[in-house]
Amino acid sequence: MKTYNQTNFFKHTFCEFTQIDSFNFPVNTNYKSKSESMYFYTKEGVYRKSNHWGRVANCRWKLIFIIIYHKQNAIINLVAFFNSIYFLLKTYNQTNFFKHTFCEFQQVDDFEFPENTNYKSKSESMYFYTEEGVYRKSNHWGRVANCRWKIIANKNYKNQQIAIGFAKWNDFYPINSTEKNFFIEVNFEEKTAKIKPIKEKKSKYLFSFSEAQKRIKQITHLFKDDKWASYFNEDIESLRMNIISQFINTEKSLQEIKRSFK
């Protein structure tokens, strides 16, 4: 999850503020918007004084209020406070899920597309939207236009075989963003590395999609080529595991890590 503070909390975030009645704004408040909303920052969070809540510019800030609050009584400025933001990137739906996104669809075998499906692409892929997500029927996965859509397939799935996959709207992640929302999963037995989205708080080192892609290429080279290991006095399998394990859990470059083993 991204860490928020006074420099970025107002950028495409969702938050629930709790109303308070015991705070007096200082004369020199930190910030006052064009709409007269006032903000005061602390180490723990931010106080906001305003007469409008809900959609605030590009954000969605709800107010958990103590007293009964009526929209008609908008003259009243309510003071609220938050110390955490629950924001996972942008919200995706049928209007934008196909714009530069990463997603892992889960293969399903028990869904029949209605005759009037929502959308059919030039390549004959079919889409059906629900409130929870989207079904996709296609014979090509991976690189799809400007997106990267994988299918978590059943054992009998073969490449270029028509398959139906389902993904929830919150399974989509932007790939043209600098947000660090991906980790790298390595299988040392199969000598493979995959980019995985972080779906909940875990002790994983995170990268942006482009950063993860670059590291995947370097890891693939470490698996396929053994020449680089001739400069080290260590068993190649052990060396490879130690170097890659560090590489996916730090922002250090591969060269820095290699040097530390000499």
Rank of each mutant, 00 (worst) to 15 (best):
N5A: 10
Q6D: 09
E16N: 13
T18S: 11
Q19T: 06
S22M: 01
F23I: 02
F25V: 01
N30E: 08
Y31W: 08
Y39V: 02
F40N: 09
Y41D: 09
T42E: 09
G45M: 04
S50E: 09
N51M: 11
R55D: 13
C59Y: 04
R60A: 12
W61H: 07
K62Q: 13
I67G: 13
K71W: 09
Q72W: 10
N77I: 00
A80E: 00
N83V: 03
I85F: 14
Y86G: 08
F87P: 07
Y92A: 03
T95D: 13
T95K: 12
F97S: 05
Q106G: 01
V108F: 07
D110A: 02
E112Q: 04
F113M: 07
P114W: 04
T117M: 05
S121C: 00
S123N: 12
Y127V: 05
Y127S: 12
R136I: 06
R148A: 10
K158E: 14
Q161T: 05
N170Y: 14
Y173R: 10
I175F: 05
N176Y: 04
T178F: 11
E179M: 07
V186R: 10
E190S: 10
E190Y: 10
E190G: 03
I195R: 10
K196M: 15
K199G: 01
K201M: 05
K202E: 15
S203K: 07
S203H: 06
F209Q: 01
I219E: 02
I219W: 05
K224F: 02
K224R: 13
D226E: 12
K227D: 15
W228Y: 11
S230V: 09
E234H: 10
N242L: 11
N242G: 04
I243H: 14
F247D: 08
T250Q: 11
L254M: 09
Q255V: 04
I257P: 07
S260L: 08
F261D: 05
